[in-house]
Design a protein around this nucleic acid. Structure first.
Length: 283
DNA sequence: ACCCAGGCCAGAC
DNA sequence: GTCTGGCATGGG
């Protein structure tokens, strides 16, 4: 188990074996951070501008206080021991390739509302354009924060967006997704769909509740359950993942992998993105 | 010009 | 219940 220390505005902790900050933040599960010219990651997260750095097995979080420790501990899911889990993964011939390709990945627990909107926005969309839309969203509704040479805006809370309408969101150029964003904001501010409420439900019920939001289908719902709610057994199914399951796991994941199917999926997703040709014509 | 993008909705069978 | 076209916009 890692332990945290605080000194002079900087949190630091020892990280688990093989942990890679770069891998965690660039493997496609989050868009909250931008890589700096040097070796760190800037972000407007947890209500402030922070700078994340990893040097060997130490993780530094600059511009923080001791009160931020629970947030980051939960964010990186340091309560989850990856050792037994990776042991199970590498016993599987297909999954072993993906894990060994980038063993530093961990599935994060990201803020709920941000994750919900991010994946609504990302449907049928490409990453550069997603970044543009989210940038405009934060600038308009978020809180300005800065640290050192970085200044940005936090991702807005649902409350900060409470008054938005399809018309007032036109500047986002989010296209048909604008009405989905409005409905998500309404559901969260009215308390119909909240992280607290989802936490009281089992995974199947939680999925059903998320599906009540317009523009949230099975894919987005599962991404929220996995990336924000820590339901690590949930495996978001895009067309590519469907093909992988049909080809390599026609009877589903092995029993020891199933409880962490979402984490397995993230290793596979990252592996596939960097080895696109390996996965053509498999199904 | 053309195709595609971590999908989803509405309407047609 | 399952399948298909259309969707807003912009990057490659």
């Amino acid at each position: 188990m890692n332990s945290w220390q605080f000194n002079n505005g900087v949190l630091k902790t020892n990280v688990p074996p093989a942990f890679s900050l770069d891998a965690c933040l660039s493997c496609g599960q989050t868009f909250l951070f931008t890589k700096t010219k040097s070796d760190g990651w800037h972000g407007a997260v947890n209500g402030k501008a922070i700078l994340l750095k990893q040097q060997s097995d130490i993780l530094y979080i600059e511009n923080s206080t001791e009160e931020d420790i629970p947030f980051w501990h939960n964010f990186f899911a340091f309560d989850v021991d990856y050792a037994p889990l990776q042991t199970a993964f590498v016993k599987d011939e297909f999954l072993a390739n993906a894990v060994l390709f980038e063993p530093g990945i961990r599935v994060l627990r990201q803020p709920f509302f941000e994750t919900l909107l991010m994946f609504i926005i990302s449907q049928n969309n490409n990453i550069p354009r997603i970044s543009g839309i989210v940038g405009r969203l934060c600038e308009a509704y978020g809180t300005p924060v800065s640290y050192k040479n970085f200044s940005g805006h936090t991702f807005p809370t649902a409350q900060q967006m409470a008054s938005c309408t399809v018309e007032s969101l036109a500047f986002l150029r989010a296209g048909f997704r604008a009405k989905y964003i409005v409905d998500a904001v309404q559901c969260v501010t009215k308390g119909t769909v909240t992280q607290e409420r989802l936490a009281t439900l089992n995974t199947e019920e939680a999925r059903k509740l998320l599906l009540q939001i317009k523009g949230v289908g099975p894919k987005v719902a599962d991404c929220v359950l996995l990336f924000a709610c820590g339901r690590f057994e949930v495996c978001p199914m895009d067309v590519w993942m469907m093909r992988v399951m049909q080809t390599y796991y026609p009877n589903g994941f092995p029993a020891e992998i199933e409880p962490f199917a979402g984490i397995a999926q993230q290793y596979l997703f990252h592996y596939a993105r960097h080895n696109a040709t390996l996965f053509d014509d498999k199904g």
